[in-house]
């Protein structure tokens, strides 16, 4: 189906170890879905599999971006088809400035013969940096090199805003952020919310969801979604803890 990110019965292993077990989830454009769950349940694996990371083996299932199965595609093809992953641990690229990096990413999306409009690019870059309260001096600094945790996460959101993806996957974007940085990041994300875009916000804690209000919340356990609900589910989870989910499962 078009206009959604659809994950169908995904089974994924690392080596012989199953990580995702018949995982299914659909996120229509215009919605923000939160995926919560304790460490080691496969949240980050899901994010990387969608992005085409080669360390994981997809045994069966599909990931459909607007109806097109992206399993087996190269990571760059998946990215250019409109999927953006904000990394939990963004990588450093020594010697490559943020401005040049984002520019290269945009140029990779250009048609043959299209020319790059540098002044417009810098206007747009500065505008988004102001919004995310990133100092303009950062444009000339190497990507993520010597950045604090919070700076790295803001830089991820800056890239996301510049590349204008249809599907944004945010992997633990709130980790390492203090409350002020969290608000700035959330504000940046909220401004990007649109009927043409969907978000999958992966997080441990309810805290981020106070600022990015999700349309749906899913709880993940042992490689699959065990519970779905509205934003109140996140609050319930916060007050009762993940053990509650475990107990619910045991009694079910």
């Amino acid at each position: 189906m078009a206009n959604q990110l659809e994950i169908r019965n995904l089974n994924v292993t690392i080596g012989d170890k199953p990580i995702l077990k018949d995982f299914s989830l659909s996120i229509p454009k215009g919605e923000v879905h939160a995926l919560m769950g304790p460490n080691g349940t496969g949240k980050s694996t899901l994010a990387k599999v969608i992005a085409g990371h080669e360390d994981y083996t997809v045994q069966s299932g599909e990931v459909l971006v607007d109806g097109v199965n992206i399993i087996g595609m190269e990571p760059d093809e998946i990215a250019r088809s409109g999927v953006f992953l904000a990394f939990q641990y963004p990588l450093e690229i020594p010697g490559v400035s943020i401005a040049n990096f984002v520019r290269a990413a945009l140029q990779a999306r250009m048609e043959e013969g299209e020319t790059f409009n540098a002044p417009a690019y810098y206007r747009s870059l500065y505008e988004k940096m102001d919004l995310l309260q990133i100092d303009r001096k950062f444009t000339a600094r190497s990507v993520n090199e010597g950045f604090s945790g919070g700076e790295k996460k803001r830089c991820e959101i800056l890239q996301m805003a510049m590349l204008d993806p249809k599907y944004c996957i945010m992997d633990e974007t709130d980790s390492g952020l203090d409350i002020d940085a969290l608000k700035i990041v959330a504000n940046g994300v909220n401004l990007m919310r649109s009927p043409d875009r969907a978000f999958l916000v992966i997080t441990h804690y309810q805290r981020l969801l106070d600022y990015i209000i999700p349309d749906k919340v899913h709880v993940m356990w042992d490689g699959r979604i065990v519970q779905s609900g509205n934003k109140d589910l996140a609050l319930e989870l916060e007050s009762k803890g993940y053990n509650w989910v475990k107990e619910e499962l045991a009694t079910a």
Partner: peptide, 27 residues
Amino acid sequence: AEQIFYMMQRGLSEGEAMSLSVNGFVN
């Protein structure tokens, strides 16, 4: 491989990712 993956996730081909890194290294 993780650095290459990160750059490819932004839409750069493997070759573009490597050449950008090399250019960064000699920059």
